[in-house]
Design a protein around this nucleic acid. Structure first.
Lengths: 201, 201
DNA sequence: CATTTTCTTTAGTGACCATTACAAAATCCT
DNA sequence: AGGATTTTGTAATGGTCACTAAAGAAAATG
């Protein structure tokens, strides 16, 4: 297998790409997060990237495929569950930290309010972008549930439902303009409910 | 003033309208609630009404204006705040009833999941339908806040934020397919948080 | 230099959207 | 009956959308 060089090597044949795809994904993430998948048309997107539509399609295939890559990128960078839901950490404490992190993250940048994944997941049922967002959201949901089930298997489902539902509410509220102070208060009251359910240790 | 008869009298001059506008609003509400404002195109809407576009526009002016009337209609019929937030009722109890009613209502009909107003309020900022939905949501928010402020003026803002945020979460979860049993459990945990904040009396 | 490969550019494609011009039809008033 | 008035159906309007056909341009290969 000497034929195939490292995929990262741009030393391929033909005219080289005139833009950086990672930078493009960053820019796309910023645009989609600021408004929404539907609100960012291909014209606005390619204008912001400094790239004409055919180049965009050569590089990414479709707007939906581009968005999928943006979502994966975002899911890895934002709200790292591994850091928060460490095995052995008391669930009430870990989930409190999760909700507080969400409240903080969702209001950190006024141009990037709420959660990109959760907001995109609310698109229409048949929509490709919404379907992919829901898949990402479901994966994160499962990780939360498994973390809870280690210590509280009997109420893992209900608590997971509460946490994900609360995060959806936090994201929606952030989008509607609720600032960080207010959103942290909302998280605090939700955490009180969690502690009652799980025991506050 | 004998010139102007009762506005409800259809005994006007010219060709009579071939359909009932109230029935049309009902049908529109059902369609919009089942998917969304954007997802229901004018073709689908007029097909369902059995009405051609020009008749629709003569009667309602525009799709956005039609939707506004649907929203008003819905806000009056669903989740009557006057019944739930009765003055004198202990706030923890009243707000618990509000969240439980929301969880129940949002999952009652699988074709009408979530809250029409809250979901429509998540549309794009410049959008006419989203703007109107946010106005309706804001009015309901104010009524909740005033109810809380009667007994708990010091934390009325925070509790209102929590209740509205939780309702947004419930609506989103209902839309994603969470059933009534699960949503009621979510409401129950949220109510525990509320009681800790307000005192459970 | 010529060929091959890949990207970029220009300029459009058809599909769908909300909305409407126009004229025929149905009703009331005189 | 003969206007006056309002709603109807037919058929189109312009606008925006994601997407692309075709040809030119930049690189590696022979």
């Amino acid at each position: 297998m000497v034929t195939k060089e490292n995929a990262k090597q741009p030393a391929r044949r033909g005219r080289p790409r005139g833009f950086d795809t990672e930078t493009a994904l960053d820019t796309g993430q910023r645009l989609f997060h600021a408004s929404s998948y539907d609100a960012v048309g291909l014209a606005a997107l390619t204008d912001a990237l400094g790239v004409k539509p055919p180049s965009f399609y050569k590089a990414f295939g479709s707007k939906a495929a581009f968005f999928s890559r943006v979502l994966e990128r975002y899911a890895q960078s934002a709200l790292a569950l591994d850091d928060i839901l460490q095995p052995g950490r008391p669930p009430a404490q870990a989930l409190a930290a999760l909700l507080e992190s969400a409240a903080r993250t969702y209001t950190q940048d006024p141009e990037q309010r709420g959660c990109l994944v959760l907001e995109a997941a609310r698109g229409q049922d048949g929509d490709d972008s919404a379907t992919h967002a829901r898949r990402v959201a479901e994966q994160r949901r499962n990780r939360i549930r498994q973390f809870i089930a280690r210590t509280h298997p009997e109420c893992a489902a209900a608590v997971t439902d509460f946490v994900t539902s609360t995060m959806s509410g936090l994201s929606a509220s952030a989008r509607e303009g609720m600032d960080q102070t207010r959103l942290m208060e909302v998280a605090r009251i939700a955490i009180a409910g969690l502690e009652k359910q799980l025991g506050s240790e």
